[in-house]
Design a protein around this nucleic acid. Structure first.
Length: 569
DNA sequence: ACGGGCCGCGCG
DNA sequence: AAAGCGCGCGGCCCGT
């Protein structure tokens, strides 16, 4: 019974099956990390079949990058239950203060390792190719051999101490790797997208389709209207500079053409400009060109970048997957006989803050579905909008305006929770590192930043103080955003486990197809929708217990079953 | 002609 | 109501 199955491109101990052929090597390890038999050398077309056979024994797969191996396996119809992504784990461990005493991070954490020009010899297996094609054409670098991958895995295991902090870090590593599997699977399945609905929507707003580079009829009409309203016949409305000059000429003395600033001014042209910008945005960001580039065979398959944000949130590459505007969400439609289950965590970050601060008052406020009303009832005389401004301002580090004025009131009402934020801010301002609940750490202050803090002149001091406050706002937000991202990873992993369990029991409960920070979408057979809705709720409860144990903070999830993503909110 | 930086706006 | 956090992307702008 193998504990682990290590997958790599080659072995330093064995020759490839034939020169130049795509190949892979699998080495089974027992629970203690000892090799079980010799490594198995496979040609590319043997790989998926072999993985499927080994998967029946439920090992934990260990590979350099999930994104290098799993898409190919999925394409061959093969899924795995559990895997360890060494690159993602390495990034977390390298910055972790919990792993700092164990040796794994020695010589890696003092800012050196983060620089591109750092000595590569000082790093663990580096230069892992971006994708499988590159892998097979790479020279057989011994740092990507199955022996090296196994060695790094064991080294990473040893880097996690057997302490409460270490166990949380272990959970983070597991959740991050599970996330990598989910990301590959979501891309494989794709978001169901109806090009006909999208095109109808574009035609309705912009007019008939035009060639790339041309301005659609409706957009050109608004441009003509705008030029008239600004009395600027030659105006290119896409040029912020020309626009600003034209605005100045009609008495709008704004410093930029951003909508938040123009809101302060009153002029008949501003409404026209607003309409132009909305239409232009639709055309350039999510118009016909976008549809051609990103939607194929009725699916939008964005690439998710797990851990792409320092806080642990995902990023995406291609198609702006995490910015699908509400205006085009109607094009997201389930296949025949299917429905979309869309779930989002209600006011996740303040609830996370309540958990971080073990703040019973805030936990009480979070009891109901509407946390901000709860806060309002406890400390703001029932004024929900004040409560929301104050809480968001506290988490983002707002000091001015209404949010600033409301802060003392918030601090008096929830001293434990606000204390967490203030401590994180002070640490960041002083150049220190903060960590999430599970132990993802913020980046260390750069040499450049530290040098800036050693100010001499008054002007330099002013800039240094500004830089310190900026960093403080980042670390303040990091603990909340990062811990929320951890909760979301656990939620995803729990959902995935339940979908696999259903499948193993002979049920089709559908697939995860989209994830957006605190929101998930599943594409499910219609008859499964109610069952899956309940499952997603249960997974959320389980995620909270997994992370925080039994605490009095609730993490309610809003779930809707819809026939169009536009109906989800 | 190319590309890095900035602006502006979409999402949470 | 305020403009405080984290991103990606398309277009413009300007240096090379």
């Amino acid at each position: 019974m193998p504990g682990y199955a290590v997958l790599a491109t080659h072995s330093t101990a064995q020759a490839a099956p034939e020169q130049g052929a795509a190949s892979a090597v699998v080495q089974l390890l027992d629970e203690a990390g000892a090799a079980q038999g010799p490594a198995v050398v496979l040609s590319g077309d043997q790989l998926a079949g072999f993985v499927r056979d080994v998967e029946a024994r439920r090992p934990r797969w260990v590979w350099a990058r999930t994104a290098d191996w799993y898409p190919g396996l999925l394409a061959a119809g093969c899924t795995v239950e559990r895997a360890c992504d060494l690159a993602l784990s390495r990034t977390i461990l390298r910055h972790s203060t919990a792993a700092a005493e164990t040796g794994y991070t020695v010589g890696l954490r003092s800012g050196e390792a983060d620089r591109e020009d750092a000595d590569p010899a000082a790093l663990p297996p580096a230069r892992i190719p971006e994708n499988q094609d590159a892998l097979f054409s790479e020279p057989r670098d011994e740092r990507t051999s199955v022996e090296a991958v196994a060695a790094e895995f064991l080294e990473q295991q040893r880097a996690v101490p057997a302490t409460p902090r270490g166990r949380r870090l272990q959970l983070l590593l597991a959740a991050e790797s599970a996330g990598a599997l989910v990301a590959a699977e979501m891309r494989h399945h794709g978001i169901p997208w109806r090009p006909d609905v999208h095109e109808a929507l574009l035609a309705g707003a912009l007019g008939p389709r035009v060639a790339p580079g041309a301005r659609p009829a409706r957009l050109e009409e608004v441009a003509v209207e705008l030029r008239a309203a600004l009395r600027a016949p030659g105006l290119n409305p896409d040029s912020p500079q020309e626009l600003l000059r034209a605005l100045h000429r009609v008495g709008v003395d704004a410093k930029s053409t951003g909508q938040w600033e123009l809101r302060e001014y009153s002029h008949p042209a501003l409404e026209v400009l607003q309409r132009y910008k909305k239409l232009s945005r639709l055309h350039t960001a999510n118009g016909w060109a976008w549809l051609d580039a990103w939607v194929h065979d009725g699916r939008f398959r964005p690439e998710y970048v797990v851990g792409g944000v320092v806080t642990g949130r995902w990023a995406s590459r291609g198609g702006g997957a995490l910015q699908i505007p509400h205006t085009i969400r109607d094009a997201v439609r389930p296949d025949d006989g299917h429905l979309l289950v869309v779930a989002d965590a209600a006011q996740l970050e303040p609830r996370i803050l309540a958990a971080l601060g073990r703040d019973n008052g805030l936990a009480d406020a979070a009891r109901g579905r509407d946390l901000y009303q709860g806060i309002a009832d406890q400390g703001f005389g029932g004024d929900r909008s004040h409560a929301k401004i104050a809480m968001l301002g506290a988490m983002y580090g707002s000091t001015t305006g209404e949010a600033g004025r409301l802060m003392p009131q918030l601090t008096r009402t929830f001293p434990q929770a606000i204390g967490v934020l203030e401590r994180a801010a002070r640490t960041g301002e002083a150049g220190g590192v903060v960590g999430t609940y599970l132990g993802r750490c913020s980046p260390a202050a750069s040499e450049r930043w530290l040098a800036g803090q050693r100010a001499t002149s008054a002007e330099e001091q002013r800039r240094a103080d500004g830089a310190a406050r900026t960093r403080g706002r980042f670390t303040r937000n990091f603990v909340v955003q990062g811990t929320a991202a951890e909760w979301a990873l656990c939620w995803l992993a729990e959902i995935r486990l339940r979908l696999r369990a259903a499948r193993a029991a002979g049920r089709d409960d559908g697939e995860l197809v989209f994830f957006l920070h605190d929101e998930v979408m599943l594409h499910v057979p219609a008859e499964a929708a109610e069952r899956v809705s309940a499952m997603v709720q249960e997974a959320a409860e389980r995620a909270a217990v997994l992370m925080f144990g039994r605490i009095p903070v609730q993490f309610p999830v809003g779930v809707v079953v819809v026939g169009s993503y536009a109906d989800a909110k």
